[in-house]
């Protein structure tokens, strides 16, 4: 066989992709719906209880903290990665998944020390979320207030 030409490469990539087992899209979506919905329901229960005693903004903030705690604890106990393997974005999209993305590298790199391991790697996945969230919010707010405001 000689070196592959561009056309050969393209044909091969098409061929190889045709051998990929199909992703179970419906099953995955259903599992994400059920698990993601369940997590949001738990958050709503907590929010409901807190709202009886606290002003709304404070109750919402505290709900976020509690959900992050739950996600962190389940990651520490080695349960959240199983939920994620099962439910995909149903586990990753809620704020508990954000907690999982912070705790999993923090734990993983503990063996490399607490400064350059745990702390440096903590926002490996969550960092981009904060960066893009903040930048999009900045642009959206500028547009909303100064351009269309």
């Amino acid at each position: 066989m000689t070196r592959p030409r561009t056309r050969e490469k393209e044909e091969y990539i098409k061929l190889a992709t045709s051998f990929h087992p199909p992703r179970p899209i419906l099953r995955n979506a259903l599992l994400a719906f059920l698990v993601g919905g369940a997590i949001c329901t738990v958050a709503q229960v907590i929010l409901g209880v807190l709202s009886t005693k606290l002003p709304r903004v404070q109750a919402q903030a505290m709900t976020s903290s509690i959900m992050v705690f739950l996600g962190a604890l389940l990651t520490g106990l080695g349960v959240y990665d199983e939920i994620g393997r099962f439910a995909g974005m149903g586990a990753a999209l809620p704020i508990t998944g954000f907690a999982n993305s912070v705790v999993s590298p923090a734990m993983e790199f503990k063996r490399e020390g607490f400064v350059l391991g745990v702390s440096a790697r903590m926002f490996q996945v969550a960092g981009p979320v904060i960066v893009y969230g903040s930048l999009s919010a900045l642009i959206v707010t500028i547009l909303r207030v100064y351009v269309f405001g």
């Binding site: 990665d81 994620g84 995909g88 999993s104 734990m107 790199f109």
Partner: peptide
């Protein structure tokens, strides 16, 4: 990913 990161294979 880190081993405890919840993602689908």
């Amino acid at each position: 990913y880190p081993t405890e990161f919840g993602h689908q294979r």
